[in-house]
Protein backbone atom coordinates (compact mmCIF):
# COMPACT_ATOMS: atom_id res chain seq x y z
CA UNK A 1 0.00 0.00 0.00
CA UNK A 2 2.87 2.31 0.92
CA UNK A 3 4.49 1.59 -2.43
CA UNK A 4 1.24 2.05 -4.31
CA UNK A 5 0.53 5.45 -2.71
CA UNK A 6 4.03 6.74 -3.44
CA UNK A 7 3.78 5.48 -7.00
CA UNK A 8 0.43 7.22 -7.39
CA UNK A 9 1.92 10.49 -6.17
CA UNK A 10 4.82 10.13 -8.59
CA UNK A 11 2.37 9.43 -11.41
CA UNK A 12 0.47 12.64 -10.57
CA UNK A 13 3.77 14.47 -10.71
CA UNK A 14 4.56 13.06 -14.14
CA UNK A 15 1.11 14.07 -15.40
CA UNK A 16 1.64 17.60 -14.10
CA UNK A 17 5.07 17.91 -15.68
CA UNK A 18 3.74 16.63 -19.00
CA UNK A 19 0.86 19.12 -19.03
CA UNK A 20 3.12 21.96 -17.91
CA UNK A 21 5.46 21.47 -20.87
CA UNK A 22 2.42 22.05 -23.09
CA UNK A 23 1.68 25.35 -21.28
CA UNK A 24 5.30 26.46 -21.52
CA UNK A 25 7.76 26.80 -18.67
CA UNK A 26 9.80 29.75 -19.83
CA UNK A 27 9.43 33.52 -19.48
CA UNK A 28 6.65 34.57 -21.83
CA UNK A 29 4.68 37.66 -22.70
CA UNK A 30 2.74 37.56 -19.41
CA UNK A 31 5.75 36.91 -17.21
CA UNK A 32 6.48 33.30 -16.23
CA UNK A 33 4.39 31.08 -18.49
CA UNK A 34 1.53 29.16 -16.97
CA UNK A 35 3.40 25.86 -16.85
CA UNK A 36 6.37 27.12 -14.85
CA UNK A 37 4.98 26.73 -11.39
CA UNK A 38 3.29 23.31 -11.79
CA UNK A 39 6.39 22.06 -13.61
CA UNK A 40 8.73 22.60 -10.66
CA UNK A 41 6.10 21.47 -8.19
CA UNK A 42 5.63 18.31 -10.25
CA UNK A 43 9.37 17.67 -10.25
CA UNK A 44 9.55 18.03 -6.47
CA UNK A 45 6.60 15.68 -6.09
CA UNK A 46 8.24 13.05 -8.28
CA UNK A 47 11.52 13.29 -6.37
CA UNK A 48 9.97 13.08 -2.91
CA UNK A 49 7.64 10.20 -3.76
CA UNK A 50 10.40 8.25 -5.50
CA UNK A 51 12.45 8.55 -2.32
CA UNK A 52 9.50 7.32 -0.25
CA UNK A 53 8.98 4.55 -2.77
CA UNK A 54 12.60 3.41 -2.53
CA UNK A 55 12.57 3.46 1.23
CA UNK A 56 9.31 1.48 1.36
CA UNK A 57 10.55 -1.05 -1.18
CA UNK A 58 13.88 -1.57 0.63
CA UNK A 59 12.41 -1.93 4.12
CA UNK A 60 9.25 -4.02 3.81
CA UNK A 61 6.98 -3.11 6.72
CA UNK A 62 5.44 -5.84 8.78
CA UNK A 63 2.42 -3.83 9.88
CA UNK A 64 -0.68 -4.59 7.89
CA UNK A 65 -2.43 -1.66 6.16
CA UNK A 66 -5.81 -2.92 7.39
CA UNK A 67 -7.14 -6.29 8.42
CA UNK A 68 -9.79 -8.03 6.38
CA UNK A 69 -12.35 -7.40 9.11
CA UNK A 70 -11.51 -3.72 9.16
CA UNK A 71 -11.82 -3.44 5.41
CA UNK A 72 -15.18 -5.20 5.58
CA UNK A 73 -16.54 -2.68 8.05
CA UNK A 74 -15.20 0.22 5.99
CA UNK A 75 -16.95 -1.26 2.97
CA UNK A 76 -20.21 -1.29 4.91
CA UNK A 77 -20.08 2.52 4.88
CA UNK A 78 -18.22 3.13 1.68
CA UNK A 79 -20.37 1.03 -0.64
CA UNK A 80 -23.70 2.59 0.37
CA UNK A 81 -22.02 6.00 0.25
CA UNK A 82 -20.79 5.31 -3.28
CA UNK A 83 -24.26 4.16 -4.30
CA UNK A 84 -25.69 7.33 -2.74
CA UNK A 85 -23.30 9.57 -4.65
CA UNK A 86 -23.95 7.71 -7.90
CA UNK A 87 -27.71 7.95 -7.38
CA UNK A 88 -27.48 11.73 -6.85
CA UNK A 89 -26.15 12.06 -10.40
CA UNK A 90 -29.16 10.21 -11.76
CA UNK A 91 -32.26 10.95 -9.68
CA UNK A 92 -31.44 13.96 -7.52
CA UNK A 93 -30.48 14.20 -3.89
CA UNK A 94 -33.63 13.77 -1.84
CA UNK A 95 -34.66 10.18 -2.56
CA UNK A 96 -31.13 8.75 -2.20
CA UNK A 97 -30.70 10.74 1.03
CA UNK A 98 -33.84 9.19 2.53
CA UNK A 99 -32.71 5.75 1.37
CA UNK A 100 -29.20 6.19 2.78
CA UNK A 101 -30.43 7.26 6.20
CA UNK A 102 -32.90 4.39 6.33
CA UNK A 103 -30.26 1.88 5.16
CA UNK A 104 -27.75 2.96 7.80
CA UNK A 105 -30.34 2.83 10.55
CA UNK A 106 -31.36 -0.70 9.61
CA UNK A 107 -27.94 -2.16 8.85
CA UNK A 108 -25.74 -0.35 11.35
CA UNK A 109 -28.15 0.89 13.97
CA UNK A 110 -30.41 -2.15 14.20
CA UNK A 111 -33.63 -0.15 13.95
CA UNK A 112 -36.82 -1.58 12.45
CA UNK A 113 -37.37 -0.95 8.74
CA UNK A 114 -40.57 1.06 9.34
CA UNK A 115 -38.95 3.44 11.83
CA UNK A 116 -35.89 3.76 9.63
CA UNK A 117 -37.87 4.51 6.50
CA UNK A 118 -40.03 7.07 8.29
CA UNK A 119 -36.92 8.80 9.69
CA UNK A 120 -35.28 8.84 6.26
CA UNK A 121 -38.29 10.38 4.58
CA UNK A 122 -38.73 12.88 7.41
CA UNK A 123 -35.09 13.95 7.20
CA UNK A 124 -35.30 14.34 3.43
CA UNK A 125 -38.48 16.41 3.79
CA UNK A 126 -36.80 18.62 6.39
CA UNK A 127 -33.81 19.17 4.12
CA UNK A 128 -36.19 19.99 1.30
CA UNK A 129 -38.05 22.62 3.29
CA UNK A 130 -34.85 24.15 4.67
CA UNK A 131 -33.00 24.45 1.38
CA UNK A 132 -35.61 24.83 -1.33
CA UNK A 133 -38.10 26.94 0.64
CA UNK A 134 -36.20 28.95 3.26
CA UNK A 135 -32.78 29.41 1.78
CA UNK A 136 -33.85 29.16 -1.87
CA UNK A 137 -30.93 26.89 -2.69
CA UNK A 138 -31.78 24.47 -5.48
CA UNK A 139 -30.39 20.98 -4.80
CA UNK A 140 -30.28 18.26 -7.47
CA UNK A 141 -33.74 16.91 -8.23
CA UNK A 142 -35.03 14.01 -10.28
CA UNK A 143 -38.27 12.66 -11.75
CA UNK A 144 -39.95 12.14 -8.37
CA UNK A 145 -39.60 15.78 -7.39
CA UNK A 146 -40.79 16.74 -10.87
CA UNK A 147 -44.10 14.97 -10.16
CA UNK A 148 -44.64 17.42 -7.31
CA UNK A 149 -43.92 20.29 -9.65
CA UNK A 150 -40.28 21.00 -8.85
Amino acid sequence: MEVAAAAAFAAIGVLAVADSLRGGIAWGMDGPQSGTFPFWIGCLLILSSLATLLRAALTPSRTLFASAAELRSVARILLPAAAFVAAIQAIGLYVPAAALIAWFMVRLGGHGPAVALASGVAAAALIFVAFERWFLVALPKGPIEAVFGY
Binding site: R107, H111, S119
Partner: peptide, 9 residues
Protein backbone atom coordinates in the same frame (compact mmCIF):
# COMPACT_ATOMS: atom_id res chain seq x y z
CA UNK B 1 -25.57 4.90 12.49
CA UNK B 2 -27.74 8.01 12.33
CA UNK B 3 -24.96 10.58 12.68
CA UNK B 4 -22.86 8.93 9.99
CA UNK B 5 -25.76 8.97 7.54
CA UNK B 6 -26.63 12.57 8.37
CA UNK B 7 -23.00 13.65 8.00
CA UNK B 8 -22.77 11.92 4.63
CA UNK B 9 -25.92 13.68 3.44
Amino acid sequence: AIVAALILV
